[in-house]
Protein backbone atom coordinates (compact mmCIF):
# COMPACT_ATOMS: atom_id res chain seq x y z
CA UNK A 1 0.00 0.00 0.00
CA UNK A 2 1.44 3.35 -1.05
CA UNK A 3 0.64 6.29 1.20
CA UNK A 4 0.76 9.51 -0.83
CA UNK A 5 1.29 11.47 2.39
CA UNK A 6 4.17 9.39 3.77
CA UNK A 7 6.96 11.76 2.74
CA UNK A 8 5.18 14.94 3.70
CA UNK A 9 4.28 13.47 7.11
CA UNK A 10 7.92 12.48 7.68
CA UNK A 11 9.09 15.99 6.83
CA UNK A 12 6.41 17.64 8.96
CA UNK A 13 7.40 15.39 11.84
CA UNK A 14 11.01 16.54 11.46
CA UNK A 15 9.94 20.17 11.81
CA UNK A 16 9.64 21.20 8.16
CA UNK A 17 7.20 24.12 8.30
CA UNK A 18 6.43 23.93 4.59
CA UNK A 19 5.47 20.27 4.87
CA UNK A 20 3.23 21.01 7.87
CA UNK A 21 1.54 23.77 5.92
CA UNK A 22 1.02 21.48 2.92
CA UNK A 23 -0.50 18.82 5.18
CA UNK A 24 -2.87 21.37 6.69
CA UNK A 25 -3.81 22.78 3.31
CA UNK A 26 -4.61 19.32 2.00
CA UNK A 27 -6.48 17.82 4.95
CA UNK A 28 -7.91 20.60 7.11
CA UNK A 29 -10.90 21.28 4.80
CA UNK A 30 -11.74 17.56 4.84
CA UNK A 31 -11.51 17.31 8.62
CA UNK A 32 -13.63 20.42 9.16
CA UNK A 33 -16.13 19.24 6.52
CA UNK A 34 -16.43 15.79 8.07
CA UNK A 35 -16.91 17.13 11.60
CA UNK A 36 -19.37 19.77 10.41
CA UNK A 37 -21.50 17.08 8.75
CA UNK A 38 -21.37 14.83 11.76
CA UNK A 39 -21.97 17.49 14.41
CA UNK A 40 -23.91 20.13 12.47
CA UNK A 41 -22.01 22.80 14.36
CA UNK A 42 -19.26 24.94 12.88
CA UNK A 43 -17.48 25.82 16.13
CA UNK A 44 -17.45 22.22 17.34
CA UNK A 45 -16.23 21.10 13.92
CA UNK A 46 -13.26 23.46 14.19
CA UNK A 47 -12.45 22.16 17.68
CA UNK A 48 -12.46 18.61 16.35
CA UNK A 49 -10.29 19.51 13.36
CA UNK A 50 -7.79 21.27 15.62
CA UNK A 51 -7.60 18.27 17.94
CA UNK A 52 -7.06 15.95 14.95
CA UNK A 53 -4.06 18.02 13.89
CA UNK A 54 -2.63 18.29 17.41
CA UNK A 55 -2.66 14.48 17.50
CA UNK A 56 -1.23 14.37 13.98
CA UNK A 57 1.70 16.56 15.06
CA UNK A 58 2.39 14.20 17.97
CA UNK A 59 2.14 11.16 15.71
CA UNK A 60 4.10 12.50 12.72
CA UNK A 61 7.65 12.16 14.13
CA UNK A 62 7.12 8.46 14.82
CA UNK A 63 4.74 7.65 11.93
CA UNK A 64 5.67 4.45 10.12
CA UNK A 65 3.82 3.89 6.83
CA UNK A 66 2.32 0.44 6.62
CA UNK A 67 -0.92 -0.57 8.22
CA UNK A 68 -3.01 2.46 7.23
CA UNK A 69 -2.67 5.62 5.21
CA UNK A 70 -2.12 8.77 7.25
CA UNK A 71 -5.34 10.23 5.81
CA UNK A 72 -7.30 7.16 6.92
CA UNK A 73 -5.78 7.48 10.40
CA UNK A 74 -6.81 11.16 10.51
CA UNK A 75 -10.36 10.27 9.50
CA UNK A 76 -10.53 7.64 12.25
CA UNK A 77 -9.37 10.15 14.84
CA UNK A 78 -11.90 12.72 13.59
CA UNK A 79 -14.73 10.17 13.59
CA UNK A 80 -13.95 9.03 17.13
CA UNK A 81 -13.85 12.63 18.37
CA UNK A 82 -17.21 13.25 16.68
CA UNK A 83 -18.72 10.07 18.18
CA UNK A 84 -17.61 11.22 21.64
CA UNK A 85 -19.26 14.59 21.21
CA UNK A 86 -22.44 13.03 19.73
CA UNK A 87 -22.70 10.69 22.74
CA UNK A 88 -22.23 13.54 25.19
CA UNK A 89 -24.90 15.53 23.37
CA UNK A 90 -27.47 12.76 23.75
CA UNK A 91 -27.46 13.40 27.47
CA UNK A 92 -28.96 16.83 26.91
CA UNK A 93 -30.92 17.06 23.70
CA UNK A 94 -31.38 20.49 22.26
CA UNK A 95 -34.66 20.50 20.33
CA UNK A 96 -33.41 23.37 18.19
CA UNK A 97 -30.18 21.66 17.20
CA UNK A 98 -29.83 21.57 13.47
CA UNK A 99 -32.36 24.27 12.81
CA UNK A 100 -31.15 27.14 10.81
CA UNK A 101 -30.62 30.31 12.83
CA UNK A 102 -32.16 33.36 11.24
CA UNK A 103 -29.55 35.40 9.48
CA UNK A 104 -30.02 39.14 10.04
CA UNK A 105 -28.64 39.89 6.60
CA UNK A 106 -31.40 39.83 3.98
CA UNK A 107 -30.98 37.07 1.42
CA UNK A 108 -32.30 36.83 -2.07
CA UNK A 109 -35.17 34.34 -2.10
CA UNK A 110 -33.28 31.75 -4.15
CA UNK A 111 -30.32 31.85 -1.80
CA UNK A 112 -32.63 31.62 1.20
CA UNK A 113 -34.44 28.62 -0.27
CA UNK A 114 -31.16 26.91 -1.10
CA UNK A 115 -29.99 27.50 2.46
CA UNK A 116 -33.22 26.06 3.85
CA UNK A 117 -32.95 22.97 1.66
CA UNK A 118 -29.34 22.40 2.67
CA UNK A 119 -30.33 22.81 6.31
CA UNK A 120 -33.09 20.19 5.97
CA UNK A 121 -30.72 17.70 4.39
CA UNK A 122 -28.12 18.43 7.06
CA UNK A 123 -30.70 18.04 9.84
CA UNK A 124 -31.82 14.68 8.41
CA UNK A 125 -28.20 13.57 8.17
CA UNK A 126 -27.43 14.64 11.74
CA UNK A 127 -30.47 12.74 13.02
CA UNK A 128 -29.09 9.42 11.77
CA UNK A 129 -27.38 6.94 14.10
CA UNK A 130 -23.70 7.89 14.26
CA UNK A 131 -22.34 5.07 12.07
CA UNK A 132 -24.91 5.67 9.31
CA UNK A 133 -24.19 9.39 9.48
CA UNK A 134 -20.46 8.70 9.18
CA UNK A 135 -20.90 6.32 6.24
CA UNK A 136 -23.10 8.76 4.29
CA UNK A 137 -20.75 11.64 5.08
CA UNK A 138 -17.62 9.83 3.93
CA UNK A 139 -19.07 8.43 0.71
CA UNK A 140 -21.60 11.05 -0.39
CA UNK A 141 -20.12 14.26 1.02
CA UNK A 142 -16.38 13.56 1.28
CA UNK A 143 -16.36 11.53 -1.96
CA UNK A 144 -14.28 8.72 -0.50
CA UNK A 145 -14.22 5.39 -2.30
CA UNK A 146 -16.09 2.51 -0.72
CA UNK A 147 -12.80 0.84 0.24
CA UNK A 148 -11.32 3.99 1.84
CA UNK A 149 -14.56 4.70 3.71
CA UNK A 150 -14.74 1.12 5.00
CA UNK A 151 -11.13 1.40 6.20
CA UNK A 152 -11.83 4.69 7.98
CA UNK A 153 -14.83 3.12 9.70
CA UNK A 154 -12.88 -0.09 10.37
CA UNK A 155 -15.63 -2.25 8.86
CA UNK A 156 -16.05 -4.44 5.77
CA UNK A 157 -17.31 -3.04 2.47
CA UNK A 158 -20.47 -5.14 2.91
CA UNK A 159 -21.12 -3.56 6.30
CA UNK A 160 -20.51 -0.11 4.78
CA UNK A 161 -23.08 -0.82 2.05
CA UNK A 162 -25.61 -1.81 4.67
CA UNK A 163 -25.02 1.42 6.63
CA UNK A 164 -25.28 3.48 3.46
CA UNK A 165 -28.52 1.85 2.33
CA UNK A 166 -30.16 2.27 5.74
CA UNK A 167 -28.94 5.84 6.01
CA UNK A 168 -30.21 6.84 2.60
CA UNK A 169 -33.62 5.26 3.28
CA UNK A 170 -33.88 7.15 6.58
CA UNK A 171 -32.96 10.49 5.00
CA UNK A 172 -35.42 9.95 2.17
CA UNK A 173 -38.15 9.25 4.74
CA UNK A 174 -37.16 12.31 6.79
CA UNK A 175 -37.43 14.52 3.73
CA UNK A 176 -40.67 12.96 2.51
CA UNK A 177 -42.83 15.87 3.62
CA UNK A 178 -40.88 18.28 1.48
CA UNK A 179 -39.73 15.79 -1.12
CA UNK A 180 -41.29 17.47 -4.10
CA UNK A 181 -39.87 20.89 -3.28
CA UNK A 182 -36.59 19.76 -1.79
CA UNK A 183 -35.60 16.88 -3.98
CA UNK A 184 -37.32 18.11 -7.13
CA UNK A 185 -35.69 21.54 -6.97
CA UNK A 186 -32.30 20.15 -6.06
CA UNK A 187 -32.56 17.78 -8.98
CA UNK A 188 -33.39 20.68 -11.28
CA UNK A 189 -30.55 22.76 -9.87
CA UNK A 190 -28.04 19.98 -10.37
CA UNK A 191 -29.07 19.60 -14.00
CA UNK A 192 -29.02 23.34 -14.58
Amino acid sequence: MIDPDAEIVRRAGAGDAHAAEALVRKHLPKMVGLARRMLNDGAEAEDVAQEVFLRAWREAPRWRPGAAKFETWMHRVALNLCYDRMRRRREKVDPDAGLLVADPAPLASDAWLAQQRAARVQAALSALPERQCAAITLVHFQDMTNIAAAEALEISVEALESLLARGRRAIKAALADVAQDLIGDADGASRG
Binding site: V32, F53, L54, F141, R191
Partner: peptide, 25 residues
Amino acid sequence: AAFAAAKATPPPNAALTARILMAAP
Protein backbone atom coordinates in the same frame (compact mmCIF):
# COMPACT_ATOMS: atom_id res chain seq x y z
CA ALA B 1 -29.05 15.79 -6.11
CA ALA B 2 -30.33 16.85 -2.68
CA PHE B 3 -26.99 15.80 -1.20
CA ALA B 4 -25.10 17.66 -3.91
CA ALA B 5 -27.10 20.83 -3.26
CA ALA B 6 -26.21 20.63 0.44
CA LYS B 7 -22.59 19.80 -0.14
CA ALA B 8 -20.94 23.21 -0.04
CA THR B 9 -19.20 24.01 3.23
CA PRO B 10 -17.34 27.21 4.07
CA PRO B 11 -13.56 26.92 3.97
CA PRO B 12 -11.70 26.65 7.30
CA ASN B 13 -11.03 30.08 8.75
CA ALA B 14 -7.55 31.57 8.75
CA ALA B 15 -7.33 31.77 12.55
CA LEU B 16 -7.87 28.00 12.85
CA THR B 17 -5.21 27.33 10.24
CA ALA B 18 -2.78 29.63 12.09
CA ARG B 19 -3.46 27.96 15.47
CA ILE B 20 -2.82 24.53 13.99
CA LEU B 21 0.40 25.61 12.30
CA MET B 22 1.64 27.25 15.52
CA ALA B 23 1.42 23.84 17.18
CA ALA B 24 3.30 22.00 14.41
CA PRO B 25 6.49 20.15 15.41
